[in-house]
Design a protein around this nucleic acid. Structure first.
Length: 181
DNA sequence: AACAACCTCAACCGCATCAGA
DNA sequence: GTCTGATGCGGTTGAGGTTGT
């Protein structure tokens, strides 16, 4: 049907990965490491773009990936983090070992967004404003930390610190307190 | 049993940022 | 300082599965 249409887009395979493709990709990454995805795709003989290979590895083939069965604790943490950070899926995923940003994003869109919408309807407009204010507050706080970090970091390396470390949610009490503000 | 409507999630796309030449 | 390719991120799509009628 489309054989005579020389679309640049049809250059690569698309769609679901086969077991064979997964195996080839994992083999090459074991040797080359998870970088230079274009090269990896070539070496593996996969007719896939580098992006596609990276995504496949990050979301499925990487070791220590947890799949399915998001626990109540994880769900609660996602809700809290989302309240705090918004749609920063990679940041949220970073706080949930073994979970990927894509999985969390999907879980949010299919499960949690509905829950949140229902809750918001119950809480009413005032609560919504509160949520927005919290989000703004968090964004401002983080931005401020970043700015301070950059400017201070230039002059005094002791002052420099990782923003992600600063926002370490492993201490849930901190998050609770922050959300109460 | 057949079909439609809905849901889930793997994968793609476009854009922004980073890093090296 | 600029260019270019690589990487990362979030939004979106669509195929396949499930549920309802």
């Amino acid at each position: 049907m489309e054989e005579n249409v020389p679309h640049k887009r049809s250059e690569f395979n698309k769609g679901t990965w086969t077991g064979e493709e997964d195996r080839k990709l994992a083999e090459v990454i074991a040797v080359q490491g998870a970088r230079r995805w274009k090269t990896i795709a070539n070496i593996a003989g996969l007719n896939r773009c580098g992006k596609s290979c990276r995504l496949r590895w990050m979301n499925y083939l990487r070791p220590n990936i947890k799949r399915g069965n998001i626990t109540d604790q994880e769900e609660d943490l996602i809700l809290r983090l989302h309240k705090l950070l918004g749609n920063r899926w990679s940041l949220i995923a970073g706080r949930l070992p073994g979970r990927t940003d894509n999985e969390i994003k999907n879980y949010w869109n299919s499960h949690l967004s509905k829950k949140v919408n229902q809750n918001e309807k119950q809480c009413g407009a005032s609560a919504r404003q509160g949520c927005k204010a919290q989000k703004r507050l968090a964004e401002n706080a983080k931005e401020q930390v970043r700015e301070e970090n950059t400017s201070a970091g230039c002059e005094d390396s002791n002052m420099g610190f990782d923003v992600d470390e600063f926002f370490d949610f492993s201490n849930e009490e901190w998050v609770s307190r922050f959300l109460q503000v």
